[in-house]
Nucleic acid binder design. Structure first.
Length: 596
RNA sequence: GGCCCUGUAGUUCAAUGGAUAGAACGGAAGUUUCCUAAACUUUAAAUCUGGGUUCGAUUCCCGGUGGGGCUACCA
């Protein structure tokens, strides 16, 4: 990497010029702003204490040293305290020609012994997936790709929440009002059918609560005493007692949910290496708690319940086992963390979970640490923000949930409409056209979600749907398609760009150089995205690349250029850009079409 | 009440403590005998507020204020 070399040489300059040792990472080197001449800029303000000279003099002295001692540097200029370094066109061209046809450019080979376990998706089986799950799934899948590109082995796991009172609610509603209907008999996708009964339960439950309040109960009392909730709790008890009839219905209905989820996952293009089921793990964790009690890191209260007292760490007390010995969510998560660690001995465990669970993960890590689990230090909660609608947060009770299947279908139809209007589907066979609509619609949806910093809440307006122009997936896909079209023409015209030998002493046009520079940044982008666990960094990078390329492509001829050396140079820029767009989009889980 | 996150053009998003705060959509005005106009060019338009640290603050710290979340013997 050229940055490291510049920094190293700059330190040498400081040593020779001012007799001071500085660490390379303490120097401020950044990319030069676009409107200023230069490729990299060294900020010299912090160095004035060492040089005891003016910013201009200091920058000039360092610049002169670098210019004389680094062949890659062609020239420099100084503006105030900013030393702008210009790399030679020779350097950029050499980079381009060496890497344009390397399929593995920027991608690290696997170089870690221990894997990273990445949990994402983790749905409940009582209702279909919605927009919030989509963000989770896309982030999780993309993150796995990014970590792999950084040389990690990644185990993608899904912890399905397939038991508990919420499932019993759907089961109860089905027993009462289901009339034995099935996905087959109704034609309704399994997860949606179950969701229907979950909604139905809540409708009747709310009515009961309403009646009880009218009779003088408080809201809390009404919620606890409503007949339906008592019945649901009875079903939960029967399930835990392995009552045959209850378990059979539970299996049947969960089966419907899984069939439905599989379709949604497949359409979304996400997958898993291992699926954990909570029904198989919910009893875990008790041993850990008992062990912690014996070691004195947990406390037992008078009623027999067991707690972690985190008040000395600025948090509260946290219940881990009820007085009756049953566990809570936290207990299970302690247990599943241990299970996961034992299964894979990972170097890191990443959980893609919404930011409303920040406190939960804070507590989880601290309790595991108290229990003496070193892997607690390597638990990473990728806490992503909520997806908000124009009218606020999605609320299933208010019917404002954006369903995942519906959304993908609507996107598909919009893509089809737009593509047909533009006449771009005219020459395609039906299967090819369908494939294209699918690629474009998913590209639009995925890019829209992933370009936003995961940590931040984001806004989604379904009425405006998603645009296909500007900073969008289809914009980038279109850039790629045009490149492929051009490369086909280039081949037809007999140009061979692989292993091209051309003179490196040509001078580059600004838009050529900008594009090559952007390509150079692919490697550092992958590293940064992996470090920060942020697909948004890749998304914003690839948009910049496509944007810059389009500018180049608009103002300079490629195949129609007369200078044959320039033709080869530009074909290589096109080829390389196409490669990097494809790779970047793959990191986001987005396909690119050869034509559109 | 306590704790956490967050406030950038009309809107949706960017910006390792650095130069004149970038894009996109929307608005205004342009570019097709020319490698795909889902493109390109030009233009108007923003850091909630008051302090502090710093040569330099959208960024770090403190106060105010707006928004969101958590604070379950639910998961």
């Amino acid at each position: 990497m050229i940055e490291a070399k510049i920094l190293e040489k700059a330190c040498e300059a400081l040593r020779i010029l001012y007799g001071q040792e500085m660490k390379p990472e303490s120097l401020g080197l950044e990319k030069t702003r676009k409107e200023i001449t230069g490729d990299y800029t060294l900020v010299v303000f912090p160095l004035l204490k060492i040089s005891r000279k003016s910013p201009e003099a200091t920058a000039t002295e360092i610049g002169t040293f670098l210019d004389e001692n680094m062949p890659e540097i062609a020239s420099f200029n100084v503006i105030k305290g900013f030393l702008n370094l210009v790399l030679s066109d020779h350097f950029w061209m050499k980079f381009l020609l060496r890497n344009a046809n390397r399929p593995d450019f920027g991608i690290q080979k696997s170089r870690h012994d221990r894997p990273v376990v990445l949990e994402y998706s983790s749905p409940n089986t009582n209702k279909p997936l919605h927009l919030g799950h989509i963000r989770n799934n896309l982030l999780g899948f993309s993150l796995a790709e990014i970590l792999k590109a950084n040389g990690h082995k990644v185990i993608k796991v899904n912890l399905v929440n397939d038991r508990g009172i919420h499932i019993c609610k759907s089961m109860l509603a089905y027993m009462k009002w289901g009339n034995h209907e099935t996905p087959e008999s109704t034609g309704i996708k399994g997860d949606h059918l179950i969701g229907k009964y979950y909604v139905l339960f809540n409708k009747h439950y709310q009515a009961e609560i309403h009646d009880l309040i009218e009779k003088g109960l408080t809201e809390a009392e009404a919620e606890r005493q409503a007949p339906l909730i008592l019945e649901a709790q009875e079903i939960l008890r029967k399930w835990e007692a392995k009552d045959h009839e209850t378990v059979t219905l539970w299996k049947t209905m969960n089966g419907w949910a899984y069939t439905g989820f599989d379709l949604t996952y497949r359409r979304l293009g996400v997958d898993f290496d291992h699926i954990y089921y909570e029904s198989e793990t919910y009893l875990l964790g008790k041993d850990l708690v008992m062990e912690g009690l014996e070691n004195g890191v947990l406390v037992r209260k008078e009623d027999g319940s067991i707690w972690a007292d985190l008040r000395d760490e600025g948090l509260d007390e946290k219940l881990l086992l009820r007085a009756d010995g049953t566990s809570v969510y936290m207990t299970q998560d302690l247990g599943t963390a241990q299970l996961r660690y034992d299964d894979y001995h990972p170097s890191n465990m990443i959980y893609v979970v919404g930011n409303e669970q920040n406190y939960h993960f804070d507590v989880l890590k601290r309790v595991l640490a108290r229990l003496g689990k070193d892997f607690a230090l390597h638990i990473n909660h990728l806490s992503y923000g909520m997806v908000e609608l124009p009218q606020g947060k999605m609320k299933s009770r208010e019917g404002t949930v954006v369903d995942a299947d519906d959304l993908m279908e609507e996107m598909f139809q919009t893509a089809e409409e737009t593509t047909r209007e533009l006449g771009k589907a005219n020459e395609l066979s039906d299967p090819d056209a369908l494939k294209l609509f699918n690629t474009i619609s998913l590209g639009a949806l995925k890019y829209f979600i992933l370009k936003v910093d995961p940590k931040k809440n984001m806004m989604f307006d379904p009425r405006e749907s998603i645009d296909f122009n500007g900073n969008t997936g289809p914009f980038i896909q279109y850039t790629y398609a045009r490149i492929q079209s051009l490369l086909t023409r280039a081949s037809a015209a007999g140009y061979s760009y692989e292993g091209s030998e051309i003179s490196l002493n040509q001078s580059l046009m600004p838009s050529e150089k900008d594009t090559i520079k952007k390509l150079y940044q692919f490697q550092e982008t992958i590293v940064q995205a992996g470090t920060e666990l942020s697909p948004a960094i890749v998304a914003n990078y690839v948009f910049d690349l496509a944007k810059g390329f389009n500018q180049f492509y608009q103002e300079l001829p490629v195949l129609k250029e007369e200078d044959q050396e320039k033709v080869v140079l530009r074909i290589n820029i096109c080829k390389f850009t196409g490669n990097i767009i494809q790779k970047s989009m793959k990191l986001l889980g987005i396909d690119v079409p050869d034509r559109m």
